[in-house]
Design a protein around this nucleic acid. Structure first.
Length: 397
DNA sequence: TCTGGGGTCCTGATGCTT
DNA sequence: TCTGAAGCATCAGGACCC
């Protein structure tokens, strides 16, 4: 999709159309998630600090992200993709691979189905554009899909793929970020063609496995299949704080929040983590992590928190820190008895909550917590699948 | 007011087992 | 009983992607 988040905002609010907009946090320490095409000539783009973007593009309207809405439209787009191919691999909310092998009888030659796909997406979303790349493998299709944005359609037949890639910058190599690009440039390699010409042996000597990988991409070789479902290997929750903190009780408070979030999402997906990891980012931007494996894989927030807290003691850096996060890794499906156990503890928490609400009602008069009770009773009903009835609003109330 | 949050994968160090 | 190599798992850090 083209400038997906920004395009959705312009779709939903006609007054934003044709204007430079930045989707991102309006305050605090954040970065631009998406800049609309109107804003990009000013030199702003994704991942740029909001403060810098604002300076470069003072006319831009700052719009806070609405992920629920993006997910909704993403589902609509993925639904369109499913009409075109049974083998769809979503890469993110706004991007997917479609295996179109053998589809020409149904949808015609590439140019024709590319156009049909684009117009189907446009219709399903009420006016969002997508850029389509068609090629003989995932890597070339990916590069092609970034080629003529926005609203583009690029078709690269397999026989022409290598020549088509050759003049392009090494920046199009999947896996070559700023660090690797610098190294490649130091070796005198500036285009994809330079890498193909250097040969596999020299690339392997200079960069090891990565060198072999880049050489394969450079000659348009990519054997990966379109894989519709992949299960996550880790699940994390982290926040950059409003200001840096070093106070242990404050740090534990944020650790608790993150651990609760991880636990809740694990339970929602009925999976357990085989290990817990704590991540801290220092004020001077160093990332520190400590992890260990659990004796018994778990998705209980308390277990995740107590392990995270003990990991906290293993950091030698006293801070201050700008970011605190918790992750679960080595994920696997939860056993049935574990799920029943959680259901029980959910019920116990629900009863505890009821007692608390009664107490609050008794002190502040009947009706004081009606809103909270309404909120929770709905979610308690859902608790078989989702034990998160204590959302922020409820606890605040 | 300069640097997010969700992830994946790779590498080198280290320690354990055979 | 000691030693070393090989193989493997785990951990920490880092690069990268959207």
């Amino acid at each position: 999709m083209d400038a997906f988040y920004a395009s959705v905002e312009q779709l939903d609010d006609p007054t934003l159309r044709g204007r430079p907009i930045l989707v991102g946090p309006p305050s605090g320490r954040g970065v631009v998630l998406t800049a609309s095409y109107e804003a990009r000539p000013a030199g702003v783009g994704s991942a740029m600090p909001m403060a810098v973007a604002r300076r470069r593009c003072p006319d831009a309207v700052i719009v806070p992200p609405r992920f629920e809405r993006y997910k909704e439209l993403s589902a609509a787009v993925m639904g369109v993709f499913a009409d075109f191919s049974p083998v769809v691999e979503p890469l993110s909310l706004d991007e997917a691979f479609l295996d179109m092998t053998g589809s020409s009888e149904l949808f015609g030659p590439p140019a024709q189905f590319g156009r049909r796909l684009k117009s189907a997406v446009y219709d399903a979303t009420g006016g969002l554009t997508v850029t389509v790349g068609v090629a003989g493998n995932k890597y070339v299709a990916k590069v092609a899909s970034g080629f003529r944005k926005p609203d583009g359609l690029t078709i690269v037949p397999p026989s022409e793929a290598r020549d088509w890639l050759a003049p392009q910058s090494i920046a199009v190599l999947w896996g070559a970020g700023p660090k690797t690009q610098k190294r490649l440039a130091e070796l005198g390699l500036h285009t994809v063609g330079d890498i193909a010409a250097r040969g596999e042996a020299r690339m392997a000597r200079d960069l090891g496995r990565a060198g072999r990988h880049f050489y394969a991409l450079a000659i348009a070789r990519d054997d990966r299949v379109v894989a519709p479902s992949r299960h996550a290997k880790s699940l994390s929750s982290e926040r950059t704080l409003r200001s840096d903190i070093a106070e242990p009780t404050e740090i534990r408070k944020h650790l608790r929040r993150a651990a609760d979030d991880v636990g809740r999402r694990l339970r929602k997906r009925a999976i357990v983590a085989g290990g817990v990891r704590v991540k801290l980012k220092t004020a001077d931007f160093r990332t520190l992590t400590r992890q260990h494996r659990l004796a018994d894989p778990s998705n209980a927030s308390d277990v995740i928190y107590s392990n995270a807290e003990s990991l906290l003691k293993q950091f030698d850096d006293p801070g201050p820190f700008r970011l605190i996060g918790v992750a679960g890794f080595d994920l696997e499906p939860a056993a049935v008895d574990n799920q029943l156990e959680l259901l029980d503890s959910g019920r116990a928490r629900s009863e505890q909550l009821d007692r608390t609400l009664d107490e609050v009602n008794a002190r502040f008069g009947p009706g004081a917590v009606r809103r909270a009770r309404d909120l929770t009773s709905d979610t308690v009903l859902d608790s078989a699948a989702n034990l998160d009835f204590l959302d922020d609003d409820t606890t605040d109330t």
